[in-house]
Amino acid sequence: PWQGRSIASSKLRMLEFSAFLEQPQDPETFNKHLFVHIGQSNPSYSDPYLESVDIRQIYDKFPEKKGGLKELFDKGPHNAFFLVKFWVKNSTLNPLLFNSFHLESHFYSCKAQSDTVHVSYILRPHNPPQVMKTEYARFENGRYMFRIHRSPLCEYMINFIHKLKHLPEKYMMNSVLENFTILQVVTNRDTLETLLCVAYVFEVSTSEHGAQHHIYRLVKD
């Protein structure tokens, strides 16, 4: 039931994704601020399918000489492509330490095989745009899991967040964020097949309830 209703292709399913800032309050407790968060969901067949977005509307936001969104989508498989609009929660924490920014992401393989995957993050605008990580599957509870646990955010992202926080008005932050995108591409290391591709765009949250998001399937009608 999760196919078409959550971030999942026929090969790989995303369970969780978050980026957060963590600061010690005292030696035993930490304040944790989630900038963005996709929590676990358990969709059923009665849930509606995700809304779709025509991928041609956002191609230009994810350009690349080689391996950009258009080229990746043309290669397929088309059921592996998603768009996430994040409403980012502004932080009241005052980060001083660079090692307090983290990213977590959990996936599991829908196939009963132990693949090794490459996870790349293509940041725009940034030169060079790619941050690449290799992840190895672990067998847990009958599934092959990929757990990216407390991975430090790259220096570019941390500096970007610092600069954004110093803008005095929300519309200024949104204006900067309109030109900032991240493309997360998970590929099978051996076959180079695209397992999952998630295009992220951002806006500042106006909610008091924390980071929010919408997920869309990317299609070409």
Partner: peptide, 24 residues
């Protein structure tokens, strides 16, 4: 040369793209 992009607001995107979800 820099290519001027179409603002997101002028693109064909679902209405929900501009509506921040409310906490349920």
């Amino acid at each position: 040369s820099a290519v001027e992009q179409v603002p997101m607001r002028k693109r064909q995107l679902p209405a929900s793209f501009w509506e921040e979800p409310k906490l349920t």
